[in-house]
């Protein structure tokens, strides 16, 4: 759909990947991540194939490399601890640059970094080529209960409003000389959070009234009825299939 509902991770482009039906992309991303997860860590060549596949799709989607790299940095804090494993893990020790580390630990680090990077790469690819409303529609078509997707849709719709309301409240507090520095000054914030909750609750009631006024009877109407073609499914399946075969071969070799 249009450029209106772009979230910060979305890259506006017209690529074959952008055009794919959202449910297809969701399913493919999920299957791909699954295949990566079960790949044995010793099969470095399999991860290379996975990385090449993701890289190829990123090229196809015309996502700027720098954009992807910058977004990938998000996993750094999460994998930082992975670098500690070789030092603390037990087992056979080897020397790397004169430092004694655990070999099992090294494999553990590699395992986490490789899988986290690939997983994040796929997520960035999905988010970069699919707008939020589409994602939600995709989830709906994959038979996620409509109540859940409706709640998610409303969260997306009203999150900015809520943030704006919070911002206004903070401005109003600051404008009247409130400048919290100490813990005992935190009360107004707590009271403010309460007020924010009431306001959101009351907005919820008003929105519900507006929905009822337009004939809402408990179920969201399905408006966009385009379903993914078999060609789309086949095209999207190629990526997780590659990763899946690589994983299967690797598993067979290890076993």
């Amino acid at each position: 759909m249009g450029a209106g509902h772009a979230h910060p991770l979305y890259v506006h482009e017209h690529s074959p990947v952008h055009r794919l039906a959202p449910e297809v992309k969701l399913a493919a991303a999920f299957a791909f991540v699954l295949a990566v997860a079960v790949t044995p860590r010793e099969a470095i060549w399999a991860f290379a194939i996975d990385a090449a596949t993701v890289g190829l799709v990123i090229r196809l989607a015309r996502l700027p490399v720098r954009f992807v790299a910058a977004r990938l940095a998000i996993i750094l804090p999460f994998i930082a601890f992975a670098f500690l494993i070789p030092f603390v893990a037990s087992g056979e020790r080897i020397d790397v640059l004169g430092v004694s580390v655990s070999q099992v630990g090294l494999w553990g680090t590699w395992n986490i970094i490789a899988k986290a990077t690939l997983g994040a790469g796929v997520s960035i690819l999905l988010a970069g080529t699919t707008e939020v409303p589409q994602l939600l529609r995709g989830l709906e078509r994959l038979r996620v209960p409509p109540t859940l997707t409706t709640i998610a849709a409303f969260m997306v719709r009203y999150l900015e409003l809520l943030a704006a309301e919070l911002g206004r409240m903070r401005t109003a507090m600051t404008a009247r000389g409130y400048d919290p520095r100490w813990l005992w000054q935190v009360r107004p914030i707590a009271a403010g959070a309460g007020a924010l909750f009431i306001r959101s609750y009351e907005r919820g009631e008003r929105v519900h009234a507006a929905m009822l006024s337009r004939g809402y009877s408990g179920a969201m109407p399905t408006i966009d009825e385009r379903v993914a073609s078999r060609r789309e499914w086949l095209a999207a399946a190629s990526a997780p299939l590659t990763a899946g075969i690589a994983a299967a071969v690797a598993l067979a070799v290890v076993a």
Binding site: A153, V156, V207, A210, M211
Partner: peptide, 10 residues
């Protein structure tokens, strides 16, 4: 309160 869907069209 009136506009609750992700896009105007919807």
């Amino acid at each position: 309160d009136q506009l609750f869907m992700p896009t105007v069209r919807e």
